[in-house]
Write a protein that binds this DNA or RNA. Structure first.
Length: 483
RNA sequence: CGGGGCGUAGCGUAGCCUGGCUAACGCGCAUGCUUUGGGAGCAUGAGAUCCCGGGUUCGAAUCCCGGCGCCCCGACCA
């Protein structure tokens, strides 16, 4: 086997080039930036403090949105009796290949195997059967933050592991309309987290029949484009109708004293978002974090020789730190050379760096450098308290715009199967077509391009015939090569 | 589950074919001195059941047999 090339040029010598080996680059960045590492158990990973802090900065605002929209956090057990999973036939068919089973307890075979939760619809429907009696009990709006187990074959840091973290919301409603509104509302929360916090523009819409969640009537998703042009599903929101409540015999007494099945939904966003941030913004120097979610927003590198200069800087930094008290600031006093620190914090994606040395102090200034483009500027020390928050906002916006331009520059409209095939042979990105919705067409396209339908674009209506088969089109769909 | 590769210090590797000194090198780690505005230099030092088990041999990291583990490529998925 040929030896792997690890180019040694440029600012970062330790990671592979994004343009030459995207998966290798991704792996190197995740490990060198100390987001995560391999664990002793195949297919699972260690989330390190820097990676976990990044996750928390995504998780916390999402938790806020979930609570603002009226949901309450619960906790349900991770062990689910196998028989629970088996009651909804599409659901079990979809998830069974990925079950991780517990078959022994206390050294003895269990009467019934327990499944480590691959998702909790079945447990929650079973439990809530006892809590939902009357239409007066509805809606029930639950959420839980937990870990999920699925026996994935091909695993990758954050994107697909055999255990991962997420939130799963499960709600129960009196009417279909209310449940469908819930599905849309939560998808929009995901869109906001992706776009406003993670600076990743997303397409939103329904999934095709083949791509929908096992057991759903329909699924919706947010779909982003990574720097290699591949599509990443970053959050899903599903409408179940009465599928699960019927399968679990979950009923309530309605306003006219009749037994009714609630309409239910579920929706989830996972630690996969961390991988999305890496792949949407990173470059050859490493991570590039949007300020709103960066664990460290500003790193200060003191530059000095000798104790006298050091204490001068310490004194100056007291005021600077006070002026930046609402900002996540890290002062790096480690006994390393400044150049080493510059490179390391760029690798870790910190949006802004402040250098303060004797030359700056003499002029009452600081040198401020953006991770985005390494642009340097000097700012009077007294103005940092105003200038830094403004710069962080500017960088947040610039990252989003750059990602949006990238996506728009890699999205084309095509109107024939040949054009679709040619696009995926010669380009990367999304191709948008009119489509009739038949699964046959998806199989045809997948066979010829490996691309699949990502989302049915809700905002546009078809005018032309289906690009794949020429039949009358019913939707506009975005095709892409998915992670 | 089918095809290919690899297990030697925390990490990356050399040594193995053709058995023989105290198992070598780089990174990292520790200590000291000199350094510090884009990945520092020197010196000293610590660190290895050579994946496991068996066999061949005077002698095994090296050869033979068996096992285990991991990685990469093809069918599922937040």
């Amino acid at each position: 086997m040929a030896e792997e090339e690890k180019p040694e040029t440029g600012f970062v010598k330790e990671i592979r080039k994004q343009s030459q080996d995207f998966p290798g680059w991704y792996n190197d960045v995740v490990r060198k930036a100390q987001l995560a590492d391999n664990s002793p158990v195949a297919g699972t990973m260690i989330i390190r403090p820097y990676g976990y802090a990044l996750w928390e900065n995504i998780r916390d605002p999402l938790d806020g949105l979930i609570k603002e929209t009226g949901h309450e956090n619960w906790y349900f057990p991770a062990l689910i009796p196998l028989s629970f999973l088996q009651k909804e036939k599409d659901h079990v068919a979809g998830f069974e290949p990925e079950f991780q089973l517990v078959t022994k307890g206390g050294g003895k075979d269990l009467e019934e195997p327990l499944v480590l939760r691959p998702t909790s619809e079945t447990m929650i429907a079973t439990v809530l059967r006892d809590y939902i009696q009357s239409y007066r009990d509805l809606p029930v709006l639950t959420n839980q933050w937990n870990n999920i187990f699925r026996w994935e074959l091909r695993t990758r840091f954050f994107l697909r592991t055999r255990e991962f973290l997420w939130q799963e919301g499960h709600t129960f409603h009196e009417t279909a309309a209310e449940a469908e509104e819930e599905v849309a509302k939560m998808l929009d929360c995901y869109r906001r987290i992706a776009e406003e916090w993670c600076a990743i523009p997303v397409l939103t819409g329904r999934k095709s029949e083949t791509e929908k969640f096992a057991g759903a009537q329909y699924s919706t998703a947010i779909e982003g484009m990574m720097m290699d042009g591949k599509a990443l599903q970053m959050g899903t929101s599903h409408y179940f109708g009465e599928n699960f409540t019927r399968a679990y015999d979950l009923t309530y007494t309605g306003r006219t004293n009749e037994r009714q099945y609630p309409h239910s939904t579920s929706w989830g966003m996972s630690t996969r978002m961390v991988g999305a941030v890496v792949m949407a913004h990173g470059d050859d120097s490493g991570l590039q974090l949007p300020p709103r979610i960066a664990p460290v927003q500003v790193v200060i590198i003191p530059i000095f020789r000798g104790d006298a200069e050091r204490s001068q800087i310490e004194t100056a930094l007291q005021q600077v730190r006070a002026d930046l008290e609402d900002i996540r600031v890290k002062v790096d006093w480690r006994d390393e050379r400044p150049g080493f620190k510059f490179n390391e914090w760029e690798l870790k994606g910190v949006p802004l760096r402040i250098e303060i040395g004797p030359r700056d102090l003499a002029k009452g200034e600081a040198t401020v450098v953006r991770r985005l483009n390494r642009a340097k500027q000097t700012i009077p020390l007294g103005e940092l308290g105003v200038a830094i928050p403004a710069l962080l906002e500017e960088v947040q916006g610039a990252l989003f715009r750059r990602a949006r331009e990238f996506r728009e520059g890699h999205t084309v409209r095509v109107d024939s199967l040949d054009a679709l095939v040619r696009f995926f042979e010669t380009s990367i990105g999304f191709a948008v077509t009119a489509w009739c919705g038949r699964e046959d067409d998806e199989r045809t396209v997948k066979k010829r391009t490996t691309a699949t339908t990502r989302v049915i674009l809700s905002s546009r209506r078809p005018e032309q015939p289906c690009a794949v088969c020429g039949r009358p089109a019913t939707v506009e769909v975005a095709w892409g090569i998915a992670y």
